[in-house]
Structures are given as C-alpha cells and as structure tokens.
Design a protein around this nucleic acid. Structure first.
Lengths: 139, 139
DNA sequence: TATTTTAGTTTATCGATGTAAACTATATTT
DNA sequence: AAATATAGTTTACATCGATAAACTAAAATA
C-alpha cells in the first residue's frame, strides 16, 4: 500500500477535520502549527492527490479537497501492520499495555466486554513465527 | 527517536531471534527470505550499529551482534505514536478493533480483566484535539 | 606463515521525502 | 474586460533509505 509520509500526514489532518476544504484554508490552518511556505504545502497536497489519498470535489467550479481514505481506518491498518511484526504470543500483551494508558468510556467498556465474552479463549496462544525468526522466549 | 527502517527491521528480526549472532549467520538466515546481496545486508547492519540499535559483543575476539533495544518495547512505542494521531475519543475503538482479530489466552484475559476492573471508567472520554484539527464527529 | 574465509568500510546510484522558488492558469471582483 | 486573488504545475536541491560493487582488514585453517 502507498504510505502517507510524516509531512503529508499533517495535510491529511487538516483535510480530515475540515473537508471539503480549499487550498487557501489548508494553508491558513497549517500556518498556525507548521512553519512551511505555501509552496511546500501545495507540493505536499499535489503528492497526496497523485497518491490518491485526496481527491478533488468539483462542485460549483471550485477546487475543494476531500480525503479518499478514512483516518481511523488508516491508523488501524498501520497498527495492524506493526502488530504483525511480533509473535502471536505477544500481541495481546502489547495491546494490554496500550490500554493501560487510555481513558475508557462506559460505552467502550461495554463493547469490549461483549467482545471478550464472545471470544473463544484458548489455554495457550500458538506462536506461528517462521523458523529461526521467533524471539518470544528471549525477549 | 531514531527510527528503524523497513529493511533494517528485517535485520533486527534475525538478531532478536538469534543473538548473539555473527554476520555470516545473519546473511545465511536472511537469504532464506530476502533476495539481498551480502553487501546490502552488511550495509544495513552497519547502519543499525551506527544508530545504536545493535551493539557488538566482543567476547572471544569475534564479532557477534546483539540488539540494544527490546523488540516488543519498540513496537509498543511505535503503536503509541500512531495512536497519538487520533482523537482521544477514538483510541479505544481502534484498540477494540485490533482485539477482535487476536487470539487470547486465558492468562492474558485475566490480566486484561484485572486492569479493566481497576480502571476508572468515565461517562464520556474528552476530545483534546487542537482547534480545527479534530474530526471525530466527521469520521 | 600462506591461504582462505569472514568481516568491515567506502563509494555509488536511485527513488522517496522535505522544502521551496518561480511560473502559469483559473476564479473573483471591480 | 481588466485587475487581483487563489490555485495548480514545473523545477530544484538536499537528505534518507534501498540496494550493491569493490576494496580492505582480520580470523581461521591448511
């Protein structure tokens, strides 16, 4: 999958939060946090369009940008990719560490509890690492 | 923090799983999965040493490499960085999605349940996004 | 110790990313 | 329609990452 670079992500943030939005506004909003020239922002924006993360909404003969991917979906996918890099036996432990730092609403807790109740719990989770590439006993 | 690039990460995998390990073995193991020349592997290895992710274990006058960071710790940090990019109100929802795809052992379930029980649950989690940069109502 | 192995270093090329000036085109307003 | 504001494109350059050849150094072994 194409990736969104760090700088490009800052553009995406603005689009996600304000779409449909025009260049002028993107520039204005970013000037509050980034010390970038207008040109830089335009370059990044055009790269995002080229990568198809952003599309142009051509209503009323104006250029207004809208995102072509869901932010949370994108982050979730990236997180999944990271999780794939560790042994199956360790994934849940990492998730638990993340949860320790989060605020939880009663609603989310309920959803989570439901999922946990429905899940089939195993005595032991199997490691599926390729030979010579597992480290779970060593970490 | 310095980052481990995609290619470098493949070297780290081998080191984590086989440390202390010497270049020859790293090369041999990687040849099973990567179509890289020996040179490439050596270059990547030297960059990792330079970035201090890997150090040399100089026992018995041999070069043996060992990692200087914990793998799970590294992945966890990267995941935290990703989570920081979304609104506080959404973080837990993403984590829940991740959990849906994971196998859970009874032990991990117990740990998680304990943590959840101890956590103070809020009626609603507050959004702390900077003005004009939140999208939680729009996603 | 002379010869092989195995390692480590230097140098290089190519594509992606960060950053931006300059130039062209299209809307909007006068 | 002319003038101005806004947008979009081209070009550029420096740095970083992926990839690797070539060369040097240090172990291991014959």
């Amino acid at each position: 999958m194409e990736k969104i670079s760090t700088a490009e992500f800052e553009i995406m943030r603005v689009i996600w939060a304000n779409q449909p939005v025009m260049t002028k506004d993107i520039i204005e909003i970013l000037h509050q946090t980034q010390d970038w020239s207008d040109s830089t922002i335009k370059t990044l924006l055009s790269r995002l369009v080229k990568k198809d993360f952003v599309v142009i909404d051509h209503q009323s003969s104006k250029y207004r940008y809208i995102s072509n991917i869901d932010k949370n979906q994108y982050i979730e996918t990236e997180m999944k990719n990271l999780l794939e890099k560790v042994c199956d036996t360790t994934k849940m432990k990492i998730i638990i560490s993340l949860i320790e730092d989060l605020d939880i609403s009663s609603q989310d807790l309920e959803i989570l509890t439901n999922i946990l109740n429905k899940k089939s719990i195993q005595e032991k989770v199997e490691c599926h690492c390729p030979k010579g590439l597992c480290d779970y006993e060593k970490v």
